[in-house]
Design a protein around this nucleic acid. Structure first.
Lengths: 203, 203
DNA sequence: TTTTAGTTACACAGACCTGTGTACTTAGGC
DNA sequence: GCCTAAGTACACAGGTCTGTGTAACTAAAA
């Protein structure tokens, strides 16, 4: 058997380090040498576990693809909690946007497989929203789920550029308005701060 | 004087080509050799106009920074027209997301100047929305402008991954709901298709 | 005609990248 | 004690990239 200097397997150690470096600094910016050096292993060992950098990239993205959890809390709460979770992640200094969007932006239209997994991830989140909305009996769950996903990705893109966790709060407020407009009770008397004082446009 | 084989200046020709290649294939994916070869000039000429690739990247982004036009149409119409314009751009096969977001994603947190111009661009669009909302007399124009910007960037990110121009329509529908909720007349009897049939959540 | 600014062709330095080849070491399992 | 699987050290091939150096060319201006 191979020596196991840590509880993780070597493959997992490589993936963990690749994840950190790829995500924080960019896939193209990080060479396999850098990853191996960071772990303290030889480049040969890395290539014994992954046949190519492309394979490592694919494994990195697949590892990032974790399905969103579903709790037994009310669906509306779960939906809104998504944005609280986002805000927490934005506040962390090592947040650098959506790894899938970044990979597609970075690797371009050439890399078909990367795009495939990115689409799958985006769709899985949309489906999660849709299912929660169906639980709420919302008529046009599909359309509303898409709109919520736009708010999620919009706040991620904005935070990537501006480093402003408040984008998650703004997205949450917008989500409340959309949910309310679809007949969902979001537990708030006034859904949108833009009408907090009941002001209306003069004409 | 230098020979001018085309009405444009050489600098502009370089920028135009760099724009096309950087945007479509990624900044890191394109070398200066490729740009020079595409125009049919020597690499030396390129470096006579731009001291470094970084300078060319900066010029590329600055050239992309075009302020949004303001027409004399009603502000609400102008705001919604933004999403129609987005949809048209999504439908073009050479659309590859927001060049500023892509550059930040690609170049990482190291490149400070790229981030700076990206922030300026995002903020300029938010300001444009805010000014239109102020014209409409919306109370919380700042907050609503931010929410609209989230929809814009969200639809761009989604289209980048999914190649689905319908994302722009979804963003527009969501924008209508938000505007309506802020008291703006968007000229539509029913703002959100999710309540088109008046369905309500059962509990 | 002479000058001069812009361009060209081309080589090259120096760095970095992916991926391989090879011989050596180390540590369990039998 | 031996075998085997995994890891190590290290060189290197072959490619790409940015950026520079240099001498020749071209065309317009003076």
């Amino acid at each position: 058997m191979a020596p196991l200097p840590s509880p993780q397997t070597m493959k997992e150690r490589i993936l963990e380090t690749a994840d950190k470096l790829f995500y924080l600094q960019g896939i193209r910016a990080i060479g396999v040498d850098t990853i191996a050096a960071e772990i303290g292993i030889s480049k040969r060992t890395l290539y014994n576990h992954f046949p190519s950098k492309d394979a490592l990239i694919a494994a990195y993205l697949e590892r990032r693809f974790v399905a969103q959890r579903t709790s037994d809390k009310p669906p509306a709460e779960q939906i809104l909690a998504t944005f609280d979770s986002l805000e927490r992640r934005f506040a962390a200094k090592d947040f650098r946007g959506c790894p899938f969007v970044n990979a597609v932006a970075e690797l371009g239209p050439a890399d078909r497989s990367v795009k495939k997994i990115a689409i799958a991830f985006k769709e899985s989140r949309r489906i999660w929203f849709r299912d929660r909305l169906n639980e709420l009996g919302v008529a046009e769950a599909e359309a509303l789920a898409t709109q919520l996903v736009l708010l999620v990705d919009g706040s991620i893109a904005q935070d990537l550029v501006r480093d402003d966790p408040a984008m998650a709060r703004a997205a949450k407020e917008a989500a409340k308005v959309l949910l309310r407009s679809a007949g969902v009770d979001v537990g708030d008397a006034v859904a949108n701060p833009a009408v907090k004082r009941g002001k209306r446009a003069p004409h």
